[in-house]
């Protein structure tokens, strides 16, 4: 492995205004198994303190540092430098309004998440201890509950790029599916009612960029297909 790596990073400064640009950096490899976030931290701490990005846990759990890395979305903290073609091109998540450098406005993304009511809705009284599930019912949620809402899938989706104001996007739909699959939830019918819409759900054309981008190895395309099957089963 090289001792120095090349990066090109998207820069935008709202105070300066003007067009965004790509800025080159050289970073020494300072530890084995170095991740992209380590390189960004090196730049911020040693070369240019104005470089702005989000990060928190640094180990792929919080979902803060989603960004476009060499053309594919992913989390900087769990993307090894070793596998990346240089110069590593780092850009903000696509089709988002850029606040500064790699920091984007996620308001709309979380509004869409909120719109699928991602919480347990149940009328029946809470049992003395807890709402129980069989191991099989619990296993239904595997592949959905692990979502950390980093936004890598939704901002990778061309359908969402062109119709993001109406199409809910892979992340929100994966979450909708997660609650529709949940045996304890009692609002399944209303949830399906809300989703049956040519724009909110049926903009998905199996492009599968969401599946390719998901840093947690989940499959939002499969979740969306499951929603479509459920809607079809309900109506036929």
């Amino acid at each position: 492995m090289d001792t120095v790596i090349q990066l090109e990073i998207y820069r935008f400064d709202p105070e300066q205004g003007g067009e965004p640009r790509m800025q080159s950096f050289e970073v020494p490899v300072n530890k084995p198994g170095m991740k992209l976030l380590d390189a960004l931290n090196y730049i911020k701490w040693n070369l240019d303190g104005t470089l702005t990005y989000r990060r928190s846990c640094g180990e792929g759990v919080c979902g803060s540092d989603g960004m476009n890395i060499n053309g594919v979305n992913g989390l900087a903290c769990i993307t090894p430098i070793a596998g990346l073609k240089q110069p590593i091109k780092v850009r903000p998540l696509p089709s988002m309004q850029v606040i500064r450098d790699l920091v984007v406005d996620t308001t709309h993304f979380f509004d869409q998440y909120r719109s699928v009511k991602p919480w347990l809705q149940a009328e029946s009284p809470v049992p003395e201890h807890e709402r129980l599930q069989t191991p099989d019912q619990r296993a239904e949620l595997d592949g959905s509950y692990e979502c950390i809402l980093c936004g890598c899938c939704t901002t990778a989706c061309p359908s969402w790029w062109w119709n993001g104001d109406r199409f809910l996007g892979p992340a929100a739909l994966l979450q909708a599916d997660r609650w529709i699959k949940d045996s304890r939830d009692e609002a399944t019918g209303e949830r399906l009612d809300d989703l049956e819409d040519a724009f909110k759900l049926y903009r998905c054309h199996q492009i599968m960029n969401c599946m390719e981008a998901c840093p947690k190895g989940l499959n939002p395309t499969a979740a969306i297909n499951h929603l479509k099957r459920t809607l079809l089963a309900r109506k036929s």
């Binding site: 104001d165 009612d193 809300d194 989703l195 819409d197 724009f199 809607l231």
Partner: peptide, 16 residues
């Protein structure tokens, strides 16, 4: 948000 205000159009399934 548009789709929160307008709710669902209940279409798409039949066409799909």
């Amino acid at each position: 948000l548009k789709n929160m205000r307008y709710g669902s159009a209940h279409n798409g399934l039949n066409e799909w």
